[in-house]
C-alpha cells in the first residue's frame, strides 16, 4: 500500500522551453532517482532517457512540459516521467521508434533509445494532436 506521504511529495511539473530547461529536467530526474533508491546505473539510464525525451519535446514538439513523479508499487520504488507537447505529432510511431529514424538532424536514437533505457514506455501521438510519452524506471 502506497503511503499518502509518498504521493504528496511525489510530483513536479517542469516546463521545457530551452536547452537550459533540458539540463534542469536532468537534474530533477537525477535527484528523484537518488531519492527512490535507484542504483547508479539505473539512475544514469533514466536521466539519459529524460535528456533524450526532453530534447525531443523541445525540438520536435516546439516545447512542452514534463511531469516527474516519485512512484511506489508494493516494495518497489521508482520514477515516472510524462513528457507532453502540442507540436505536430508523430504520423508513424513504429517508424519513429526505429533506430536511425530522424527528422531533427540527430542520430535518431531518441525514442527507441529511451525505450530501451526504461522499464515502462508508452507513447500517444497523432498528427496535429501533439505527443505524450510516459516512461518509468523501477528499483
Amino acid at each position: 500500500m502506497a503511503t499518502g506521504d509518498d504521493a504528496a511529495r511525489g510530483t513536479a511539473v517542469l516546463a521545457i522551453g530551452s536547452s537550459d530547461d533540458v539540463v534542469r529536467v536532468r537534474q530533477e530526474v537525477r535527484s528523484r532517482a537518488v531519492a527512490a533508491g535507484l542504483g547508479i546505473v539505473d539512475q544514469t539510464k533514466i536521466v539519459t532517457a529524460a535528456s533524450e525525451l526532453a530534447r525531443n519535446t523541445l525540438i520536435h514538439g516546439g516545447g512542452g512540459t514534463v511531469r516527474v513523479e516519485s512512484v511506489s508499487q508494493g516494495v518497489r520504488r521508482g520514477v515516472r516521467l510524462t513528457f507532453e507537447d502540442h507540436g505536430p505529432g508523430i504520423p508513424d510511431i513504429n517508424q519513429a521508434l526505429k533506430d536511425g529514424f530522424t527528422t531533427g538532424g540527430g542520430l535518431g536514437l531518441g525514442l527507441g533509445g529511451s525505450k530501451r533505457l526504461s522499464n515502462e514506455f508508452e507513447i500517444d501521438s497523432a498528427p496535429g494532436r501533439g505527443t505524450r510519452v510516459t516512461i518509468a524506471r523501477w528499483k
Binding site: V41, T44, K45, T48, E52, L107, L109, G113, R116, L117
Partner: peptide, 13 residues
C-alpha cells in the same frame, strides 16, 4: 564512468 558506458551502449551509441 561505468554507468555512463553501460547506458551509452544500451542507447545504441
Amino acid at each position: 564512468r561505468p554507468a555512463v558506458a553501460i547506458t551509452l551502449v544500451e542507447l545504441g551509441l
